[in-house]
Design a protein around this nucleic acid. Structure first.
Length: 285
DNA sequence: TTTACCCGTACGTGATGTGG
DNA sequence: CCACATCACGTACGGGTAAA
């Protein structure tokens, strides 16, 4: 014989109450964290508190809001070094606590946990978040309009290669951007210099194989270009050369740049293309 | 009038980067 | 290797505003 015990902790009614107390901005912050898993205080400030008079004031407001969400157990905080023990700053890293994850979970989706991850995974995840934040900053200048951004796993596309192998294309980000002249479609790959050039070439071949299926062209009208974001110019040059000399890779598909060059790439993609003629991935509207 | 909240400035702390 | 500049995060504090 068993007895029913009353639920402890935050039950559904309490959660509904909390949801009604959240501002639209709170919802946006939680949704952003759900999509990206992790974000630093600065990243959240740049996305959600950019209208403040000064960055400092935005930071202050951002921290205040995050502390309120922290108090409600909607978000939690890692206090870890960004970029390892020797380099990086002591940024706070925010992620969804269990109630916050439940609140933002899409209908029918499985529960996800964000607390315990390896440092390399965390660093890469934050770098992807940073790329998205950089796109938002760029959009705020008026240079481009963000039509759509997909984060993993929404950016994933399972497919069969010509050899019949079941594969999944896994871009870190998919971005559809618009300028007055062009629609630009990008697959973004964020590299932190931790993988060998042959590994990057193998990933590049996956893009080539996916392109051969014609499915992305059907989805987007063009095949998006692949933008490799790399930590240093030397690595840009190495990957650039490796792609150019790989006979099975179409250089028109790939753009290599450092993370800091992202805005310049968006301004003039052809200047960074591995093979500048006959640009792929953009289409006149 | 009191309270709670929002905002911005000044400043301390701790870390990185640089030049000698 | 050290001194110094620089940067980012967070706290302290005070002004402003709207609701109770």
């Amino acid at each position: 014989m068993t007895m029913r015990l009353p639920r402890t902790g935050a039950g559904p009614s309490k959660l509904l109450l909390l949801r009604s107390e959240l501002s639209p901005r709170d919802d946006d912050i939680l949704t952003f964290l759900n999509r990206h898993r992790y974000a630093t205080t600065t990243q959240l400030r740049d996305v959600f508190f950019a209208e403040h008079a000064t960055p400092t004031a935005g930071t202050r407001a951002c921290i205040r809001v995050l502390h309120r969400l922290l108090h409600n157990r909607l978000v939690a905080r890692l206090e870890r070094r960004v970029g390892g023990t020797s380099r990086g700053s002591a940024a706070s890293i925010w992620y969804l606590d269990a109630p916050g994850e439940r609140l933002t979970r899409p209908e029918g989706a499985r529960r996800r946990r964000f607390a315990a991850v390896s440092t390399p995974f965390l660093t890469h995840t934050l770098a992807v978040t940073e790329a998205h934040v950089a796109l938002i900053r760029q959009a705020r200048t008026g240079a481009v309009t963000i039509e759509r951004i997909d984060v993993e796993p929404d950016s994933w596309r399972p497919f069969l290669t010509r050899a019949g192998t079941s594969t999944i294309l896994k871009p870190d980000l998919y971005a559809h951007l618009a300028t007055p002249e062009y629609d630009d479609h990008w697959y973004l790959e964020v590299d932190l210099g931790t993988e060998s050039i042959p590994v990057l070439l193998a990933k590049s071949r996956t893009y080539a194989a996916y392109r051969a299926t014609g499915r992305a062209q059907a989805e987007h009208k063009v095949f998006p270009r692949v933008l490799w974001l790399l930590p240093a110019q030397a690595r840009v040059d190495r990957l650039h050369a490796a792609i150019q000399t790989a006979p099975e890779l179409d250089g028109r598909l790939f753009v290599c740049a450092t993370t800091g060059q992202l805005s310049e790439v968006l301004e003039d993609p052809d200047a960074f293309a591995t093979q500048p003629t006959d640009p792929e991935g953009r289409r006149k509207p």
